[in-house]
Nucleic acid binder design. Structure first.
Lengths: 238, 238
DNA sequence: CTAAAAATATGATAATTATCATATAAATGA
DNA sequence: TCATTTATATGATAATTATCATATTTTTAG
């Protein structure tokens, strides 16, 4: 997305019907009138890398539409570590479950890159829910998909070794977020974050990355990770 | 529930508006007319302990309402072990996610006790969906609750030790399914099943149960497990 | 640009967990 | 009933993973 660094006021004025990422989410079911209403009530926000969009336990009273950038959804475990439950990229919505359950969010959202997000108040979304069947069906399908992913993920966490989980996660990152021209993963997580995704100590994660590197499965240069042998990685991940 | 071992035909005739477990599920939103329609199209089934209701990958084309008994929802991991993702008791519905996503089920359902279940065809449920807003909202909230549970569960699996997970699971079993007059857990899982819930080798699970027993946290007698010191167990589970 | 802080890396060691072997107890079926 | 299978239990050992210590590299702030 080209951003000419327009002043925030203008950005706030931007119309949802011209927003391309809308097409990637449940919002694609909204008609012109609904989109106009949406434009009026939404607020746009710039989030800097590392900033928190919302925190576990908070009442956010609406949903966020990610216009640009990537964020992590984390949950603090009693052992003091943040587990990364999910990564969210542009086009996706945040806070749907919380809104429907009428509960505080159970995950924190933290920007991994600079982000542009729009906040849509609950009242507005619930209105679409009542009147637009396709919209509510879309939301429902998204949450169902999240549930399936989460169940699958749970089984991986419970049944696979750390090595298997690391291989699986590296493949997931490449498949979901792609690679740069030099072949390196577009999404750059710190070793600590990667550990927080696979559920392991940071040192163990670093050690396994070194092993993969020595075995020629990946290539490490600074923060960059290149997957060199996806087939072998897939075999490890099973 | 008292069951006089009525012939199956009579059982099939039973009316949904007189079914008490309906009140525990999303179906409570249905009105009299809808319940009559439901009675006509549902089929009732007796499932013996150990029998499979549906299997991962199957297209079930409807949902099951659990009238009596408990079943496990499992997913086969590449390591050959069945992971128990969730336990389902009477009053709950099965197969909602699959129906909404219009996908095969991603979990298998196996009876842990003799069960009575009713099958409701997809066409019927989807009709309620369109016409009864409260019903679809109930389903949505159930799935949202499942998603939250699954995310929480995922973090436990990823971040907690086997000992912590075992303590957590024992408490969950007592809180969810209750205890007998002698104080033992109502739900009786084999050691292998318990291992499949916490994601560990059966021997490790047995060993930890022995440890808990020796520490006076639980009492083992045959298949029976009595939680003797819930506070300490909770502390272990964190 | 440089000092300080943070992230990454690796070694040494301890703790956890899995695996294999084997014994005992319980459940099942003819 | 008894034999046979299956489940539970425990020991010995190996493999995995975490923890602590300490370099080294990279990033950040002044």
């Amino acid at each position: 997305m080209i951003n000419f660094a327009l002043p925030k006021t203008f950005f706030n004025m931007s119309k949802c019907d011209q927003c391309i990422v809308r097409e990637f989410s449940s919002l694609k079911a909204l008609n012109k009138d609904e989109l106009l209403k949406l434009s009026d009530c939404k607020t746009s926000h710039t989030i800097k890398k590392g900033e928190v969009i919302f925190e576990e336990g908070e009442n956010i009273n609406g949903i966020y539409c990610v216009k640009d950038g990537i964020c992590k959804l984390t949950k603090l475990s009693p052992n003091g570590k943040d587990h990364i439950v999910k990564l969210i990229k542009k086009g996706e919505l945040l806070g749907q479950r919380s809104m429907i359950s009428d509960e505080p969010v159970n995950l924190s959202a933290v920007a991994l890159e600079d982000m542009e997000v729009c906040f849509i108040p609950k009242s507005e979304v619930m209105g679409f829910f009542d009147k637009n069947n396709q919209f509510s069906m879309n939301v429902m399908k998204t949450i169902c998909s999240d549930l399936k992913d989460s169940d699958d993920h749970m089984v991986s966490m419970a049944q696979k070794s750390v090595k298997e989980r690391l291989a699986e996660t590296l493949i997931y990152l490449e498949e979901t977020f792609g690679k740069n021209v030099d072949g390196s993963l577009v999404i750059q997580l710190s070793r600590e974050e990667l550990s927080g995704m696979i559920g392991t100590a940071t040192e163990s994660c670093i050690r396994l990355l070194s092993d993969f590197n020595k075995l020629g499965l990946i290539e490490l240069s600074g923060k960059k990770i290149v997957l060199k042998d996806i087939n072998k990685l897939k075999k490890i991940a099973e």
